[in-house]
Write a protein that binds this DNA or RNA. Structure first.
Lengths: 102, 102
DNA sequence: CTAATATGCAACTGATATGTTGCATATCTC
DNA sequence: GAGATATGCAACATATCAGTTGCATATTAG
């Protein structure tokens, strides 16, 4: 699950798109296009990847689609990092305990 | 810079390798192999990707190479998420202020 | 010196990603 | 209804990735 999130964030275009959505709020594809060096199809593809990863929600309104940043997915990724750091820290703790016993 | 980190983490094998390094401490390639369904060359490739992203440090000792988890790269990625959340939160704040002025 | 061990390098295959183009569909506006 | 707008779908070329295989190199152990 987190692999999808990390993959979505491994592209500079998608990072930029997500930042714009977080800063600027819900927007259509075309609004997002302006300021990003990408074609419409390219942006659409990036948006669908972000959406599959759960980082973006979309809502169809008439002929246009409103894309919105979804902060929930971010906590998943942060949790993964927290687990990693916990694994690291608890190893250091174990080492220190062993050392103090000698 | 963070794109490389996220890319490195977008593969389940590499996630697993990194967790093992954090839990088990410095190890050689062959030690890491046991328990992961991958060939030596596959694991080597994954390790070099993790290293290019800064998530793993390596040190040559005699004929073997000791790979080690590098926690510094993790803070970079966490900072990126923090910036994203800050962009999101400050937008919500702005909306709330606008609302209260009416 | 010889064996075994740990690793590197290079080539190859199949799969996936990225970006582009052309055409089709649905909705809004006038 | 006609034209403009927002989007979808599909095909294609190029690049990169993942995984495998075979051979070469360097270091250690006996």
């Amino acid at each position: 699950m987190t692999t999808q999130i990390f993959f979505a964030l491994s592209d500079p275009h998608r990072q930029e798109i997500l930042l714009r959505l977080a800063r600027g709020g819900p927007q259509t594809t075309l609004t997002l296009l302006k300021g990003i060096g990408a074609t419409r199809q390219g942006a659409t593809r990036h948006l669908s990847i972000l959406e599959e990863a759960g980082l973006v929600k979309s809502e169809k309104r008439g002929r246009e689609i409103i894309r919105e940043f979804n902060p929930e997915a971010v906590t998943l990724a942060q949790q993964w990092f927290a687990d990693l750091e916990h694994a690291w820290d608890s190893r250091l703790d174990r080492l220190r305990q062993q050392y103090e016993q000698e």
